[in-house]
Design a protein around this nucleic acid. Structure first.
Length: 572
RNA sequence: CGGGCUGUAGCGCAGUUUGGCAGCGCACCUGCUUUGGGAGCAGGGGGUCGCCGGUUCGAAUCCGGCCAGCCCGACCA
């Protein structure tokens, strides 16, 4: 490509509304432009990177036996009703009506459609199957953010496996785990696999691939000592044992006028430190009022609550719902003596005595509460949010918690979709059984952005060779110098002949502009051709990552860069 | 959905307090000079001041409503 003929609109100033590095740099370097909240146009440079990311993903999924499909983005609403996800995903579904009044949705994911096709599978002899596509998804995210990191229209590689039994599913799951590991390595992303919540996808176990970054939206609890890693939506910790002493013979009520919060009660005379209080929350779990008890200094993880209850919808109860259920207002709530209501207590409260909690009478609390003796706990659950420094559940070393980007997510679905949609086969005994499914997703543009988050410096993007929009740029410092012009064009042609994806900067611009643009965009290699070097028969080869340059004789320059690129993209 | 902030040229911004010719820098066009790290001089083009309504002789500026975007939270494969 000749730069002088290309549309590469770099900006001299940072865009004002871009906070995340990837957002700022991808806009400024001319890769993307925003159309509206969470919707971006790919400009030519962005399109090239996206294509390379997709190609890497495609190669690795083909390598584990994937067959490529392309499914529609318009879906009949009815199929979403059948799996219950019209309700379960209603907040992010784009819905529309066709001219005949038919109800449609824009596909946010494709379990329903792939499973419908899988209905044509009739025999276990046809299994396993591994199907995938790379295609647009639409999700009406309530808050798109950070450029390409969270958008409403994006490209996803989604694959779906179909097996006769759990062992087959495990094999496909493991194959994807390995393929994803290779994909992220080739993208230059240090992704770590973590235990995750399956959320609205359903199924029995899922793994997210996380890239540590402040621009991310998830928190990961990680143990350096044993390698335990889990999304905080799932992470657990081994809380240290607490000695509560003898314990009172019975709870004692005392007046606490004006006390509304855990913190209030900590400082109230005769109160208690947060770790010796019971926090009483009221949630509506699929319509059923549920009391949730936590230690006073713990925070509820709503996703855990949703997971342990298997609920579709979990929300905090409103003030009036609470008063109707418990007869007291938030600030004085407690579960002592409560009956006929589901009470979930966090494991951190098990065996605790001498605790303080609301008396369920406004402006009164109880002290001397023995949780197991005084409260009719329906279920003991783990719903607390893990905090940094708490002991790792498997080895006891302190956990670290860091922010991360979810780069990929793989799910063991089981029969969550095959049963309601009737994707069954006959097994070896001639019995009709639903197929065992897995689904596996990678967001293409999000991974582009993650690469930029990880690979940039104060001058701009530093693309790994594998996904760079062009692998090398030939910068002709002075286009009016005939020798520079012809040498530069010749080296460019030589690069193309050697299979290097190259662009030649033949613009009538000053050298500083060209150097700055090349570094902002982040081409891995630059060959600088100018009168100064040509006087000695050399050009300069500069590596973007290290910033180091070497002088190379003109005739050897293209081969030199081609060799370095080959070395950088070599795969074990 | 709640809170905060912002909408003025392609990008970055001033002007709004106190109503009175719509400005600055970069980018862009023409010419000359310049050419190894975002050049200089001269000339020039580009605007529904987010939208609608109101007040006023007169509105980017004041008032009302709406829309959009960003950040935090809620929510979210």
């Amino acid at each position: 490509m000749r730069w002088s003929e290309a549309f590469i609109p770099t900006l001299r100033d940072d865009p004002a509304d871009a906070e995340a590095a990837s957002h700022r740099l991808l806009v400024r370097a001319g890769f993307i432009r925003q159309l509206m909240a969470g919707v971006y146009s790919m400009l030519p440079l962005g399109f090239r990177v996206r294509g390379k990311v997709m190609q890497i993903i495609r190669e690795e999924i083909e390598a584990i036996g994937g067959q490529e499909f392309l499914l529609p983005e318009l879906h009949p609403r009815e199929i979403w009703e059948r799996t219950g996800r019209l309700e379960g995903m209603k907040d992010i579904l784009f819905t529309l009506e066709d001219s005949r009044g038919g109800d449609l949705v824009l596909g946010p994911t494709h379990e329903e459609i792939f499973t419908t096709i899988a209905g044509e599978l009739t025999s276990y002899r046809q299994l396993p199957q591994l199907w995938y596509q790379i295609q647009t998804k639409f999700r009406d995210e309530p808050r798109p953010k950070a450029g390409l990191l969270r958008v409403r229209e994006f490209t996803m590689k989604d694959s779906y496996s179909f097996d006769i039994d759990a062992e087959g599913l495990d094999r496909q799951f493991d194959a994807h785990f390995d393929a994803y590991t290779r994909i992220f390595r080739r993208l230059g992303l240090p992704a770590i696999p973590v235990v995750a919540s399956s959320g609205a996808m359903g199924g029995s176990g899922s793994v997210e691939f996380m890239v540590a970054s402040e621009a991310g939206e998830d928190d990961v609890a990680h143990c350096e000592s044993c390698g335990y890693a889990a999304n905080v939506e799932r992470a657990t910790a081994r809380p240290p044992a607490v000695d509560d002493g003898e314990g009172a013979a019975a709870p004692e009520r005392f007046p606490t006028p004006g006390v509304r919060t855990i913190a209030d009660l900590e400082t109230f005379p005769g109160g208690a430190e947060a770790a010796r209080q019971i926090k009483t929350l009221v949630y509506i779990v699929d319509g059923e009022p549920t009391v949730v008890l936590l230690r006073g200094d713990d925070a509820l993880m709503e996703q855990k609550l949703q997971d342990v209850t298997g609920a579709v919808e979990v929300r905090p109860a409103t003030g009036s719902e609470i008063v109707e259920l418990l007869g007291a207002s938030p600030g004085s709530l407690g579960a002592v003596g409560l009956r006929d209501v589901r009470i979930l207590a966090d494991e951190a409260l098990r065996g605790r005595r001498n605790m303080t909690t609301g008396a369920n009478i406004d402006d009164h609390h109880l002290r001397g509460v023995d949780v197991e003796r005084d409260i009719a706990v329906s279920e003991w659950v783990d719903v607390r949010t893990v905090r940094p420094g708490e002991p790792c559940p498997s080895c006891g070393a302190p956990l670290e918690v860091f922010r991360a980007i979810e780069a990929g997510h793989i799910f063991r679905l089981g029969t969550t979709y095959s049963e309601p949609l009737g994707a069954t086969v006959l097994d070896a005994e001639g019995k009709t059984v639903p197929v065992m499914m897995g689904s596996y997703g990678i967001g293409v543009e999000r991974n582009m952005a993650a690469v930029v988050e990880v690979h940039h410096d104060d001058r701009g993007i530093v693309w790994p060779v594998s996904v760079a929009p062009y692998e090398a740029v030939v910068t002709i410092v002075k286009v009016s110098d005939t020798d520079s012009w012809e040498t530069g064009k010749r080296i460019y042609e030589e690069l193309l002949a050697l299979g290097v994806d190259a662009i030649v900067d033949d613009r009538v611009e000053r050298p500083g502009v060209k150097f700055n643009d090349a570094e902002l965009i982040g081409f891995p290699y630059r060959i600088t051709v100018g009168p100064r070097g040509l006087a000695d028969g050399v050009v300069e080869v500069t590596e973007r990552r290290s910033g180091t340059s070497e002088e190379v004789v003109v005739a050897a320059a293209a081969a030199r860069v081609a060799d370095q690129i080959a070395a950088a993209t070599a795969r074990p």
